[in-house]
Design a protein around this nucleic acid. Structure first.
Lengths: 287, 287
DNA sequence: GCCCTGTCATACCCGGTGGGTATCACCGAG
DNA sequence: CTCGGTGATACCCACCGGGTATGACAGGGC
């Protein structure tokens, strides 16, 4: 009943993701035989079959599936422990153990709220240094989980808040951003269905960790590029209302009547006990 | 930047909890020198001072505090991975990988809701086997975290739901349970202040992991014992309304006007993906 | 049917390291 | 000053994690 070593978890996760011992071993920077042996030992120690070695490759058993999920979570927690400890120790070489918070924000999100928050917090006496970490489309959750960030601004329903503690900061509607001259731009409100089905104006597709959802619209990885394409009349997009701040003259914004409201939260790992974090949250809720 | 081994975390947590290398080593079943060396290696690898070795004992640095918190969480996640994997593999010796859910419930909580839930779920086609795990006063959270349980009935505001996903099931007021003949028992409602300040009738104190909060009331670890003491006119207690189900003739229940309502949730680890769990939750919310 | 290829498992060896014992250095209490 | 108790150091050994070479086995092409 001795507890799993994180090395074993790393090995198993690699194999379970690759479903191939050779590739997994390569990814781990080791040879295949010791990896095979390690997985066998793991299976023996757990008393459970994790992989189905069929002819030609490997498949996960039910137990393997759970170990993959749970093991990833455990590994995230472990690397989070290491990262946060390094940060708390001020391992920046400067010597002084500086109190620093890492705040993950969606790159494209509203600067207005963020600016207000940072200003208000910096004005607090004894405020910690806040490092703003821009994150990809929806990976704030991962960053909190694996310790790259201590706290995040997240946007329901896009980010899942499950597993985090949080406070609601702001609620806003959503708008369709269209080329200024487009017939629909004259409307007072639109519905999601209307925007999604405009002939000749397919909705843009954002990359989500490298891959794009299928669809006819152009592939977008940059807000400038999207703005340009909309201005040129090639695409349309749906945004929270705060996006109005960066619209061009060539853009038109029309409120969506049936889009779910976007709720901005400040969120943090539920077990956090940092004083600086509590102070930042208090500041945020008072805005 | 290699990731921490859980062995190192175990060692550090032991030392951080004992604040004494010798005792920690004993607890870990090893000798003291290798433990000292392991902690030194850990500090070197993290590039951070974790412990302040003063004359006479050891103290945690700031980084040490964070590693203690985060390390505990990581270790919990690791043992949870092991336990859930074992369970998913049906390592019960029977061979068949049985689908089983472990449901943690406060021992003293209402049987009514639980009974309905179990009956309703058992009637579902393809329902998994549900093992009901009685848990101490407030440790359902720990049980979810370290994998002893998959899902729990929790009672806000007593249990913290932080870090879990959950659905609200039931809300109820609280009542004061008094000896039947007591003058206050005739009142239509009471306030917390009134119940807390009755001369000669101190509120009972429940044990919380072995220790009791300070106060004049008797120390309670068993609901029967409490019922007896109330019946004897020696103490009083505050309970959710569902406690009426087990009151004796010698008891009187008076609603509390200012006590916060007790909300029963069904809660589970946020990253859970189990189908059986989803089914149980769906059943619960439909009650 | 053949062999070849790709896969994971086995056999065997070696070096690093985790752990043990003995001991030291230090400090506070008496 | 000595003594008890702390954590650190020195040194040694055995275990095991990792490497290389090879085997077993199943499909697929011919």
């Amino acid at each position: 009943m001795d507890t799993l070593e994180s090395r074993e978890l790393r090995y198993f996760v690699a194999v379970a993701e690759e479903l191939h011992f050779g590739r997994a071993a390569e990814r781990l920077g080791m040879a295949q035989p010791p990896l095979s042996r390690a997985i066998q030992q793991l299976e023996r120690r757990l008393g459970v079959r994790l992989l189905e070695r069929n002819r030609r490759g490997v498949a996960l058993t039910g137990a393997g599936e759970t170990l993959l999920h749970e093991g990833r979570a455990a590994l995230d927690a472990t690397t989070a422990a290491a990262r946060r400890t390094r940060r708390a120790g001020g391992a920046d070489g400067s010597g002084r153990p500086r109190n620093r918070l890492v705040l993950a924000v969606k790159a494209a999100s509203s600067h207005e709220l963020l600016q207000k928050l940072l200003d208000a917090y910096a004005a607090e006496p004894g405020a910690a240094e806040v490092e703003v970490l821009p994150s990809g489309t929806c990976e704030q959750g991962e960053m909190l989980r694996d310790g790259r960030a201590d706290v995040a601004l997240m946007h329901a329903p896009f980010n899942s808040l499950a597993g985090f503690d949080g406070e609601e900061l702001m609620t806003e509607g959503q708008i369709a951003v269209l080329p200024a001259g487009h017939p629909l731009a004259a409307r007072a409100t639109l519905t999601l269905a209307e925007v999604g089905a405009v002939p000749g104006l397919p909705l843009a597709r954002w990359s989500r960790d490298g891959a794009y959802p299928p669809g006819p619209g152009p592939e977008i990885h940059d807000q400038r590029q999207l703005a340009q394409l909309i201005a040129l009349g090639r695409t349309a997009a749906v945004f929270p209302e705060s996006a109005r701040a960066w619209l061009w003259a060539e853009h038109a914004a029309v409120p969506l009547s049936d889009a779910p409201p976007v709720v901005t939260h400040i969120a943090w790992p539920a077990h956090s006990r940092s004083l600086a974090l509590a102070e930042l949250v208090r500041t945020a809720t008072r805005l």
